[in-house]
Structure formats: structure tokens, C-alpha cells
């Protein structure tokens, strides 16, 4: 891992900078990437040696994606905040806590299909019943039930991990 780092971290930082344009953040993200590799290695996974840069790029893309996803979450929250009829100005602490909550929910629902996420959120956040959700999303109630079961299972898996 040491050798991998020494041989490629400059290259990786450059690669990241080309994608986000900010040298400071590229350095942070390159760090995150190597941390993930280290964790994968401890988990018993071998870094393939034949084309390490291709592998690095795959992991870096995930890190990059999570970085942008966090930004998108923050933006969505700020927009919702701005659209509220009453003037609210949450404290910096509120903001951190809310963003963490959003990130957590987003990560828990992870790679579930969009429909499944929507069903779960309409039920849990908006308190809509299955029949209404089915009408809104144009799907039969039996599919709504199945989506709920999948999303609840994802919550359990995340809590157990």
C-alpha cells in the first residue's frame, strides 16, 4: 500500500483535480480514496497490481460521487429552506445535524430503486397510506407493499452494520 501510495498519489490528485478543479479538495479526496483502499485491504481484499491506476480510478469515482452527493443534499435542503413561507434561520449546529440526518437516510436507502425510495419516504415522511401512494406513483398497492418491505429491510441492514 505504501508503494502504491508513493507511486500514484500525485497522479490520483491530478486526476481528481481535473474533475473538481479545486486543488485543496482534490488533496482531501485523494486522501479519502487511499483510506478506502486501506480499509478494503484490511477487509482482506487485494489491490490488483496489474493496473493499479484503473483500480484507483474506480475507487476515486466512488469517493467523488459521495462528495457531490453530499453537496446535492445540502443544496436540496437549502432550497427547501428558502422555499418555506416563514423566515427561518437555523443555527450552524442545526445545519450540521440536519445534513447528517439527510446523509444518513440517503445512505441507508442507498441503491434502492427510485420508486422504492419514494414509496418509503411518502409513507414515513408524509404519512401517506399505501392506496394513496399507489395512486400518486401509478403502481398497484401490492407493489407499494413490496417496496416498503425492501426499504424497511435496508434500514435494518444499516442499523445492524
Amino acid at each position: 500500500m505504501q508503494a502504491l501510495y508513493e507511486a500514484h498519489h500525485g497522479w490520483l490528485e491530478n486526476w481528481l483535480r481535473r474533475h473538481i478543479g479545486c486543488a485543496h479538495q482534490a488533496a482531501d479526496l485523494s486522501h479519502d480514496t487511499f483510506e478506502q483502499l486501506l480499509r478494503a485491504e484490511r477487509g482482506g481484499r487485494q489491490v490488483p497490481l496489474r493496473e493499479p491506476r484503473a483500480y484507483l480510478t474506480v475507487v476515486a469515482r466512488r469517493v467523488l460521487y459521495e462528495f457531490w452527493r453530499r453537496r446535492d443534499l445540502e443544496r436540496a435542503w437549502l432550497e427547501a429552506l428558502a422555499a418555506q413561507p416563514e423566515e427561518v434561520a437555523p443555527s450552524a449546529e442545526d445545519r450540521v445535524a440536519v445534513l447528517q440526518a439527510l446523509q444518513r437516510l440517503d445512505a441507508v436507502l442507498g441503491r434502492l430503486p427510485l420508486r422504492t425510495r419514494q414509496v418509503f419516504m411518502l409513507n414515513q415522511l408524509e404519512d401517506l397510506g399505501y392506496r394513496e401512494i399507489g395512486e400518486r406513483l401509478g403502481m398497484p398497492v401490492i407493489s407499494v407493499r413490496r417496496a416498503m418491505a425492501r426499504a424497511i429491510a435496508a434500514c435494518c441492514a444499516a442499523a445492524g452494520a
Binding site: 443534499l73 436540496a76 435542503w77 432550497e79 427547501a80 429552506l81 422555499a83 418555506q84 427561518v88 442545526d94 445535524a97 440536519v98 447528517q100 440526518a101 439527510l102 444518513r104 437516510l105 440517503d106 441507508v108 436507502l109 419514494q118 419516504m121 411518502l122 414515513q124 415522511l125 408524509e126 434500514c155 444499516a158 442499523a159
Partner: peptide, 17 residues
Amino acid sequence: RAVAPVKADAAARRAAL
């Protein structure tokens, strides 16, 4: 654990949806 903190904040709820 996944839902309650988001549900508690109106803007977060809308953002999630």
C-alpha cells in the same frame, strides 16, 4: 433511526422527498 431526525425538520423532509 433512519427516518426520525429527517422527519423532525420540515425543510429536510421536503429536501428528502
